[in-house]
Structures are given as C-alpha cells and as structure tokens.
Amino acid sequence: MTAVQERPPAHREQDSPTVLGRAAGLRLPRRRRTHGSGKVATRPLRVSHLIAIWAMLACSVATAWFVFFALVLSSLQFQHSQHNLYATFREQLSQEVAPLGGEIAPDSPVALLSIPALHIKDSVIVEGTASADLAKGAGHRRDTPLPGQPGTSLIFGRETLFSGIFGHLASARPGELISVTTGQGIFSYKVEQVRHAGDHFPTLLADGESRITFVTSEGADLANGWTPQRTVYLDAKLQGKSAEAPPGLLSSVPDAEQAMNGDVSALFPLVLWIPLLVLAALAAVWAQERWGRWQTWLVGVPVVLAALWGVTETGIQLLPNLM
C-alpha cells in the first residue's frame, strides 16, 4: 500500500498498529509514509499475528516466572514463613502453651527440628502435610503422634522447592543425632537407617518407645528437570523416655496430605487469582493510555507482581507436596 493518505485530524496514537507492539517492548517497523512511489520494505504486522505473538509471549513469560518462582523465590517465602513461625513458637514455648497433641490446627508450629549433619538448625515443624503446609516448613502428619510421644511420628519435608530442607536426607548416616523440641521437652533421636523402596521395615517398637520417620522425595536434579523420582525415608529412634500423648488423634488424613500428592483444592483460589491477574494486566494496559507511562509503571508493577505471586504460590500447591 503505497498511496498517500491524509492524516485524519482526530488521529490518536492508540490507533497506530505499533502501540501494542510498543507495549510489548517490541520494536516493530513503523509504516513509512512516502510521497511518491517509494516502496515500503516491511509490512506492519497483522492483528492476528499480533494476538498470536502476544499470547505466546505471555505464556512464555508466565511459565518462566513460574519456574523462577518455584526454584528461587519460594525459598525467600520459606525463610519468611520460618521466621514468623519461629517467633510464634518461641513465645508459645516460653508460656508453655505449645500444642501437646490431639487435634492441632493445621499450619500451627508444633516442634523445632535440628539435624546438625544435614545443616538443619531450629527449623520449625508445622502441623499438616499438604502442599501449602510444607511450603512453610517441615510438616507433621496429623494422624501420627508428635515427636517425643510413643509410636511412630511421620515428618514430611520438601526436597527441591521452598528451600528443600530435606534435600540431602538420604546422605544421613546411622548413629547421627537429631534433636526435636516440642512443648513436652527436648528429645534426642538417633538415626537408624535410610530406607528406599524394597528395603525392610524397621523393627517393631516396644510399648513406650518412639520413632520418627522423615519422608521426602529424591532424585530430582537439573538433568531430569527437578522431577522427584521416588520417596525416601529416614528412621530415627528416641534415646530416653517418651512423653505421654493426650487422646484425640485423627484416625486418617485426607488425600491431599498423603505423600507425593498435590492439593486439588488449590484450584478454587487459583481460578480466582487468575482473573485477578488478568484484570490487573488489562488495567495496566488501559492505564498506560489514559494515565501515562511512568505512572502506570509505578502503580502497576507492584499490583501485577502481587497478583502474579498469588497465582504462582497457589499454583505450586497443585504440585506434589514432597517436591
């Protein structure tokens, strides 16, 4: 199209085909106006192409963000949660109101874990083993007694995401010491064995004996894209006397709290977060027209980032809890 055309007096920048391209940070060729018979070397992009580019770019950016969040930012969130939980738990311990057993509200801190050989120091164990709980710290499975109480206590922990505190669990050696602090006191455990699929179970416990079994996944690394391969267990036995457990223990936990399961109920908040993100993005685009560039950037970035954070944080809950 080489004809000369008059610019309509009401021409506004947003009628230009390159606005969308500019907003995406792409430098698309402007249509060159020529008087005369100059050829235009490049054609402006058709709308359908623009939409396709937009969609794929958005997808690409979103997935990149997701992976970035999962591997890097989640650790930040984990540290933040642990900091808050530690403060709460410390206060509870000092006032002797820490939970002792029975039915404990999920996500509340129940114990402090220290495994010097694995460089874990005073990590707060929370109640519950769903994906969301394990994002805050190691999780205590709700239908087992607390550490320090008779019976086998199950503690789940993540391998890769959210700092992956149990990432090196399989490297523990028999005889290494583990210390757990609960509202009932400080208990010392000794590692018995690391168990993989196909290994025999540990010996039966006598009446009054206590054992902790730490559960995590293993086999995830860069080569296989951080995919957890299987679960691995670490058994540790209490040295000394156990403390009596109050009654009221749950008899079973829902599917979302079992090993290597994601939390399907995270879909509900997710389908609310996603429209919120979309709205934020649309509002930013719209504001860029009406308001101005730097104003939009100043206000829009935190808003869009917050929505994005919400989406990814909720989306991660769909992934296996031991990942």
Partner: peptide, 20 residues
C-alpha cells in the same frame, strides 16, 4: 520381630513432571 512386607515408594507420575 520385624514386620513382614517391604517399603514402597509413593510416586507422582503426572504432576512430578510439572517443572520440566
């Protein structure tokens, strides 16, 4: 006495491949 049976592993075939 050791209880009979062997340890089994829990796996998550689909969602485990989420990241890659």
């Amino acid at each position: 006495a050791i209880p009979a049976g062997k340890t089994t592993s829990a796996e998550s075939p689909l969602l485990g491949y989420a990241l890659p």
